[in-house]
């Protein structure tokens, strides 16, 4: 009797493979680097034109960083799922028996990593163009905030991106579905970054409770998303 045995890879191993696949696609295409990052910097410059006041810019810089993140995220999510649906890759993954939880987790982490990279550019832009103050203790708060917010945004972006994937008019549907859900992240991340930047007299220590809100948000959408993603993409 043949002694063949087909081992089912663990969920985390599959998720890791999916994540690497998504990041490799980005590294090869360089869409984030060549298109989305410049787009987000342009948004920051346009905010400066619109507000036209150094003092106000310094005060509202944290909000502008996160608004630019949200807008850029829409582009990244659409790009991620356009790649998946263009050649029926998402269906192929499903047919191949890939666990949807692993698919969700892998794609979410990859999206989170891309958003983190984007936020490094945006925080740097705020530092140089908006003249915000950033000390070492503040930098730690900003770092943790970026990390937690991007994990949460990765989960939400993947969940709703999967829902809109393959749908007619997804470009217009995605912002309508996604932006209301990310409002808590915008609020939490802006307040935490305000503390990190010392904007409006906020103390650095005031940022930590807001980071806690971001953590709760990320955990909730991580758990719920891994359950809901399967039925959403199961066409």
């Amino acid at each position: 009797m043949s002694d063949t045995y087909t081992a089912t890879p663990s969920l985390l191993k599959v998720a890791r493979t999916i994540m690497i696949k998504d990041l490799r696609t980005e590294v090869n295409s360089r869409v984030i680097l060549n298109q989305v990052a410049p787009f987000s910097v342009v948004i920051m410059i346009l905010f400066a034109f619109a507000l036209d006041n150094d003092g106000i810019l310094q005060r509202v810089a944290p909000g502008l960083v996160w608004l630019a993140t949200m807008f850029s995220m829409l582009v990244v999510v659409q790009r991620t799922f356009a790649v998946e649906t263009a050649d029926g890759a998402l269906d192929a993954l499903r047919v191949a028996g890939v666990d949807t939880r692993a698919l969700f987790l892998g794609k979410s982490v990859a999206l989170g990593v891309q958003l983190c990279a984007l936020d490094v550019v945006l925080v740097a832009t705020a530092f140089f163009l908006y003249n915000v103050q950033l000390e070492l203790s503040g930098l730690l708060v900003v770092f943790v905030t970026v990390l937690l917010a991007c994990i949460g945004l990765g989960f939400i972006g993947t969940l709703y991106g999967g829902l809109a994937a393959g749908a007619r008019g997804r470009e217009t549907l995605l912002p309508l579905l996604l932006l209301p859900v990310v409002a808590p992240v915008l609020i939490g991340a802006t307040r935490a970054t305000e503390a990190g930047f010392n904007s409006g007299g906020a103390e650095v220590s005031e940022g930590w409770p807001w980071s806690g809100l971001l953590l709760i948000f990320a955990v909730i959408f991580g758990v719920v998303g891994s359950v809901a993603f399967g039925p959403l993409i199961d066409e």
Partner: peptide, 13 residues
């Protein structure tokens, strides 16, 4: 998902 989202949005606001 909306049932989950609404209290979260409300709480944060």
């Amino acid at each position: 998902l909306a049932v989950l989202e609404i209290p979260l949005v409300h709480f944060s606001v």
